[in-house]
Design a protein around this nucleic acid. Structure first.
Length: 275
DNA sequence: TAAGTATGTTAAG
DNA sequence: TTAACCTACTTAC
């Protein structure tokens, strides 16, 4: 489930290993040399930037991980020592437990210089307290990119993926095709605040759930529409053809820059503009 | 039980 | 542009 909230949660989980000397192996083989070199080094900290994870070991050694679509961390309790799965890229063992990483797009041992390069190509992250939409506004107010593309562009905003993109635009009633420069500064601030709120909530609850009672869609509910007693995880994501919770119009889906984009054509004013 | 699909990115061609 | 990564969940049979 790799959007930014998941990576932040994984970074938090790694803090259990802080100051421990780990035994690292790579049953799958593609990280064997690096695992052997790091074994016995003290793990010092974990950091998330967007969907990228950095595991720091003493002497400024970093493991850079990107889960991609299939990558998973599997945590084992203290004392549990299951047989290593042959697909495990990285296995880390110490007294407090064990973790296995499988299927990542990226798992590499990097220097501080390379880490800096990776940060430099990533945009502002709603989960990083030091980041602000203010630094991106000058570019946004000149850009003709559709906002639906911008929210997914990791070099501009890091951590939002296909689920949060669809949900943020729906919750604020924004047409995904509208140009960045046609979105007001106030609306960018609202998008940023909502991103922070939704991703933080994802870190807390452990999965993406945008449909909490505290975060209703801003669209006014007609009196004839009743929300289901048990709300699903999302308002529009993966709900093609089902009625919008706000206006009952069927949710639509199109291919958009090689990814699927879900939206309510009515609440997000798609018909009255272009598609 | 099998088949299909997905919250993503990289590198080969 | 396409294949690779090779998990976990949902749906079909």
């Amino acid at each position: 489930m790799p959007e930014g909230d998941s990576i932040k949660r994984i970074a938090n989980a790694w803090s259990d290993f802080t100051d421990e000397r780990l035994i690292l192996t790579s049953p799958q083989g593609r990280f064997s040399g690096e695992a052997a070199r790091l074994t016995g080094s003290k793990f010092t900290s974990a950091e998330a930037h967007g969907k990228h994870l950095f595991l720091e070991f003493e002497h400024q050694q970093f493991i850079h991980v990107h889960l991609g679509l299939y990558g998973r961390f599997l945590w084992h309790k203290r004392g549990a020592t299951p047989e290593p799965k042959p697909t495990t890229r990285l296995r880390a063992v110490h007294e407090a437990g064990m973790v296995e990483l499988s299927g990542p797009t990226v798992c590499e041992l990097i220097t501080p210089a390379r880490k800096q390069l990776i940060h430099a190509r990533l945009g502002i992250d709603p989960l990083r307290p030091q980041d602000s939409i203010k630094t991106l506004l000058p570019w946004l107010q000149k850009s003709s990119w559709p906002i639906g593309k911008t929210l997914m562009e990791q070099s501009k905003i890091a951590g939002i993926g296909n689920v949060y993109r669809a949900e943020i635009l729906f919750m604020l009633g924004v047409n995904p095709w509208i140009a960045n420069k046609d979105v007001s500064k106030d609306n960018w601030n609202n998008i940023w605040l909502l991103s922070q709120e939704l991703l933080s909530n994802g870190v807390t609850v452990g999965h993406i759930k945008t449909t909490t009672p505290n975060l209703p869609p801003p669209v006014t509910l007609p009196p004839t529409v009743t929300l289901p007693t048990v709300m699903p995880q999302a308002y529009v994501y993966m709900r093609t053809g089902e009625p919008c919770f706000s206006c009952s119009t069927p949710i639509e889906m199109v291919e958009f820059y090689s990814r699927r984009l879900y939206y309510c054509p009515n609440c997000q004013n798609v018909k009255t503009l272009n598609v």
